[in-house]
Design a protein around this nucleic acid. Structure first.
Lengths: 217, 217
DNA sequence: TATAAATCGATAATAATTTATCGATTACGG
DNA sequence: CCGTAATCGATAAATTATTATCGATTTATA
C-alpha cells in the first residue's frame, strides 16, 4: 500500500504569497541564476526565511540543498503546478467599460492560468467589437455561451448597480467562481466562490501604513 | 493624569474588512435604516458576528445597544474617522496607460479619502491632456511637483520594466507610500510603505477556491 | 409590569500563522 | 582533506486571529 503524505493545506496567506515568489523566481531565472536560497528570497521580499521555506515545502517536490538553496527551475515548476497554471481556467468577462477593457488588454493573465474567452455588455457601441482578440457579445448571450463552453469562471466589471444581477445570471448559468471588481458585496449561493477586488480596501491598508509611518517620525 | 485606554491595534485583516462594512453601512443608510446589528452585518457579509463586534468596537465611540444594534450614522462616522477618510490623502499617479487612465477616471476613490492631484507620463501623446479633470505632466516634473505640494502618496501604473525606476524617483522626492499596480516586487527603503495590487495573487486565490469547489462535487 | 427574545461586551477557548531554535548536511576555501 | 559558514528541514514556541460561551441589558409584548 502506498502511503501518501497527507499534504498540509496551504493557507490563504501562503497562496497569495506564491505568485509573488513565482514572479521573483522567474526574474531570477531570466537573469541567468540557477539556484536561490530561502534566505535570499526572504531578504529581497522582506519575509521571514522560515516562512519562505515552509511555503516552498508545500509546492516543491525536490528539497533544497544546504549551502546552495533550491533549483530555480524546479521551484518555478512546482509553484506553477500547485497554482494550476498548467491547466488554465477559461473565463468570461462582463462589462466592457474602462476597467473591463483594461483587463481584456492585459496580457499577464496568461502567465497565471487565466484565459478570457469572451466578453459581454449591453452597450451596442461595443458589442461586436474585438478587444485584444476577444469578442464582445450581447449580454443576453451570456448564459448560452457559458453553458455551451462549460465555463466556470466569471469576471464582473459592470457598475455596482447591476453587479448583483450579473452575478445571479452568472451563477445560474453554471459559473462557480466570480472575480468581482464592482464595489459591492454580492449575495450568492454558498457553493459559488467569490473574490472581491476591492481597491478601497487596499487603499485603506496603504493609508493606514502611511499614517503609521508619518506618526513614527 | 488622564488615563488613555491603550487602544488595541487593528489587524490588517480588520482594516481590510472595514471598507467592506463601510460600503454595506452606507447602503443601509441610503435604504433608510437607522440601526443595524452585528448579527445582521455578519449574516449578509458571511462573517462571524463576534468578529464583526470586535472590529466595530475598535472604530466606534458609541457602543451597541442590546436588541437594537448600532446606530448606522455613528458607525459610519467611526469607520470614516478611523480610516482617515476625513483627512484625505493627496496622491500622484505615474503611468497614464490603460490602467492609469482607468484609475484616473474612477470616482469612487473620493469616498475613501484619496485625491489624485496630478498624473505623469513620458509619452508626449498624453502629456498636457486632462483626464477626469486631472492634468497629465511630463515625467520629469514629478520630483518638483511632489516636493512643492508635499505629496506623500504615489500610484504606479507603468510597465514593469520601469516600475523600479519610478519607485526610486518617487521615494527620493519624498513619497512615503506607494500603491504599486506593476507586477514586480519593488526594492525600497524600509520607511516607505508599499501596497502591491497584485491581480495574479487574487487570481491564484480564486483559482484555488474554484478547484476546491469543483473537487467537492 | 413581568416575560421573552435579541443583542451586546467581556472573557475564555480554539485555531491559524508566524517566528525561533537546533541538529544535520553540504559546498567551498585553505 | 578538513574546518567553516551557509543552508536546510523539523520541531517547538510565540504570536495573532477567529470563534464560542455567558451573564447582563434592553426593547417589545402579553
Amino acid at each position: 500500500m502506498i502511503e501518501v503524505k497527507a499534504d498540509a493545506v496551504a493557507s490563504k496567506a501562503t497562496i497569495s504569497r506564491l505568485p509573488v515568489y513565482l514572479r521573483f523566481l522567474r526574474d531570477k531565472l531570466k537573469a541567468g541564476d540557477e539556484n536561490v536560497s530561502s534566505t535570499a528570497i526572504a531578504e529581497e521580499l522582506r519575509l521571514n526565511p522560515v516562512q519562505v521555506r515552509k511555503d516552498l515545502a508545500l509546492v516543491s517536490s525536490e528539497s533544497g540543498k544546504p549551502k546552495l538553496g533550491f533549483r530555480l527551475k524546479e521551484l518555478i515548476e512546482g509553484i506553477e503546478n500547485f497554482l494550476g497554471i498548467c491547466n488554465t481556467h477559461d473565463a468570461v468577462l462582463c462589462g466592457v467599460g474602462s476597467l473591463g477593457s483594461t483587463l481584456l488588454k492585459y496580457e499577464g493573465f496568461k502567465n497565471y492560468g487565466l484565459n478570457i474567452v469572451a466578453a459581454f455588455d449591453t452597450n451596442s457601441a461595443v458589442i461586436g467589437k474585438k478587444i485584444n482578440g476577444i469578442s464582445v457579445f450581447a449580454y443576453d448571450a451570456l448564459p448560452k455561451t457559458v453553458k455551451r463552453l462549460n465555463i466556470k469562471m466569471g469576471i464582473i466589471t459592470v457598475p455596482k448597480s447591476v453587479a448583483q444581477n450579473v452575478a445571479d445570471n452568472m451563477a445560474q448559468s453554471g459559473i462557480m467562481a466570480i472575480w468581482n471588481f464592482a464595489p459591492v458585496h454580492l449575495s450568492l449561493p454558498e457553493e459559488v466562490a467569490v473574490k472581491y477586488e476591492d481597491l478601497a480596501a487596499s487603499l485603506a491598508l496603504l493609508g493606514k501604513k502611511l499614517e503609521d509611518t508619518l506618526r513614527k517620525e
